[in-house]
Write a protein that binds this DNA or RNA. Structure first.
Lengths: 193, 193
DNA sequence: CAGGAATGGGACATATATGTCTCACTATTA
DNA sequence: TAATAGTGAGACATATATGTCCCATTCCTG
């Protein structure tokens, strides 16, 4: 029922984002926790998302969208492979919460409809990395498979480290050092980083 | 009751390891799942671990032990900082399952008794990294905080990537490339890796 | 072979999360 | 001012996970 009015839309977004943040920290969190974090009653939660499944589905769509948008904006076919890789990493770090949650649920679910698109996006990234191998900008000893997956590991670190190690490392420093880490490891000539 | 006989001890280990593996993959897994994975009935599980808490406590001790053992064996005070760092990473990769599960629960719980020891081990690592900064072997632009935390991110990648990307990347290749990744990013002069 | 150890299977009560529903209150808007 | 959208609080039935207990069966060992 609530769908059109601005206030309802804002409430929906608040619940959705609280859900993503909460589930990223604790995948087993109860709906009550999510509602509390969103600042609404549990009944209000169910008013917007009938199920727990309805929430995760919406979060899934949001994450897929962020994912495609980031890859598009990175313009993976431009410049050297390593340059494109840098742009990709930078873009991904701008949508951290949704992407982190998405990855943490990757093994469990796979909507059949997404498979084609997802494979297509994966192919773009693989092609970018192979180009990097070919043009000599990306370390030939690191496989496409490893690089494309280990990026996520570093994204996890960027997301969680500032939160856990209280005060010692800010968001900005974490992102800066993460990018340096990613570039140095992927580069064929890391001394140029 | 069951504690002494070899068969009971083996059963206990089987349940404990199944618990670690299962909870590493899915922290919200039910006890029934763990028992099934261990190949025992749920009642047998409760015969060895009264609680879910009893299991996690045992797993926690196992992980803490693996952690201290790995750090000890790395002999962090020997050689250059970077050499010690390589030994540490190698050792840690030998106890992956327990350490991975342990890290995934790090935020939630903290037994007060462990704090001193844990801080001590952390200090050894921090000292090793600072030595690496001082002797010029470790990249001065990467903070001790970042390096010591981001190691865990790469360990996650080593653990999960071979499992998820079926067949494309074996355990051996994953470990090799992970070590290369870690060394290149931490090194002050990565071209020597 | 006899006896105890180890286990599987299942019954049972309980706790917690979940989804649905109702009702009263508030704020916005016509 | 009157109507309506949005919300909070809570009751309720249900499902699932959990912990405990009991008994029959199997396996090992003396």
């Amino acid at each position: 029922m609530p769908e059109n009015t601005p206030v309802a839309e804002r409430t929906r977004r608040a619940i959705l984002e609280a859900g993503i943040a909460t589930l990223a920290a604790n995948p087993g969190a109860s709906i009550a926790e999510i509602a509390t974090r969103a600042g609404v009653a549990r009944s209000t939660f169910h008013r917007y998302f009938s199920d727990r499944a309805a929430l995760t589905e919406a979060a899934h769509e949001l994450a897929i969208d962020a994912w495609h948008t980031a890859v598009d904006r990175a313009e993976l076919t431009e410049g050297s492979g390593l340059e494109a890789y840098r742009r990709l990493c930078t873009e991904l770090m701008d949508s951290l919460p949704a992407l982190i949650w998405w990855m943490s649920t990757a093994g469990a679910e796979h909507a059949p409809a997404d498979f084609e698109e997802e494979d297509d996006t994966d192919r773009k990234i693989a092609a970018m990395l192979r180009r990097g191998h070919a043009d000599g900008s990306i370390d030939p000893k690191l496989s496409v498979e490893w690089i494309s997956n280990s990026v996520w590991a570093t994204l996890y670190a960027v997301y969680y480290i500032p939160a856990e190690s209280k005060g010692k490392l800010g968001n900005f420093e974490a992102r800066q050092q993460a990018l340096r880490t990613l570039m140095k490891s992927a580069a064929a000539d890391p001394s140029a980083i």
